[in-house]
């Protein structure tokens, strides 16, 4: 499918949940390879399994069977803490509901992944500030999440996602909680930053307009991939 080496690969991935009497198959044998630098949109109706797939790809949950390789590291069977370390180095996250720590200021939230990775603090601060600058929040460094609007919180989350220059960025409905103006703003920032940092972007959405900006659209239904199309992104 691609000549580029894949930075994220899933092979025969399944996930099922036992809900008492019966077993619910959420993912049924997913095979997916994502080359470095690609912008992939995963689409599907609600309940199609797209968010679960994203979570598994990021090592946020363990698959029932199958393997996942992130940037050459097979994360199958890794312990909780090892997984955390992989995530910390390799993956940035943007969630639908921002998921900022309410205890920390905007700047501290952005700095957090860097600190968790044991990075040098003063260098970190400089980068955190420049990232917040580029999302237009250079003057809100000391604000706490509750003091920020939804759009602003999501921009802080964006800055945080890029903080440690992760090779992969994952976004789960990043504009889902925002109005169209703010949503568009956040999306523009996401794509701009993504291009500037040269990150691989995996985005889950059911918004066609949003997906249309991706290099590749993977469509899911009932826990399986039903379409996988590469788009010609000239613009």
């Amino acid at each position: 499918m691609s000549i580029l080496p894949s930075i994220l690969a899933a092979r025969n991935l399944t996930k099922s949940l036992d809900s008492g009497s019966h077993r619910v198959e959420i993912l049924r044998g997913i095979d997916l390879e994502i080359p470095a630098g690609q912008f992939v949109a995963i689409m599907g109706a609600s309940g199609s399994g797209k968010s679960t797939l994203l979570g598994l790809l990021a090592g946020l949950d363990t698959a029932t069977s199958g393997t996942i390789v992130i940037d050459g590291v097979d994360i199958t069977g890794l312990s909780e803490d090892k997984l955390a370390l992989v995530r910390g180095r390799k993956i940035g996250f943007v969630f639908q509901s921002y998921q900022l720590l309410p205890t920390l200021t905007a700047e501290e939230n952005v700095l957090l992944p860097h600190e968790l990775a044991g990075g040098d603090v003063s260098a970190g601060i400089a980068r955190a500030r420049s990232l917040l600058d580029s999302v237009g929040l250079g003057d809100r460094l000391d604000h706490y999440p509750v003091q920020l609007s939804g759009g602003e919180q999501q921009r802080v989350a964006l800055a945080r996602a890029f903080m440690v220059k992760p090779p992969i960025l994952m976004a789960d409905e990043p504009t889902g909680n925002l109005d169209s103006v703010n949503g568009a703003h956040v999306l523009d920032l996401l794509i701009t930053l993504n291009q500037r940092e040269g990150t691989t972007l995996v985005l889950v959405t059911h918004d066609i307009a949003l997906a249309s900006r991706a290099d590749r659209i993977v469509t899911m239904r009932d826990g399986a991939i039903v379409a996988d199309e590469l788009r010609d992104q000239a613009a």
């Binding site: 946020l60 803490d81 910390g88 957090l112 968790l116 990775a117 945080r160």
Partner: peptide
């Protein structure tokens, strides 16, 4: 959130 951002249990 901390885990997602790479925090270990120890941390």
């Amino acid at each position: 959130i901390l885990k997602t951002l790479g925090g270990t249990r120890h941390h």
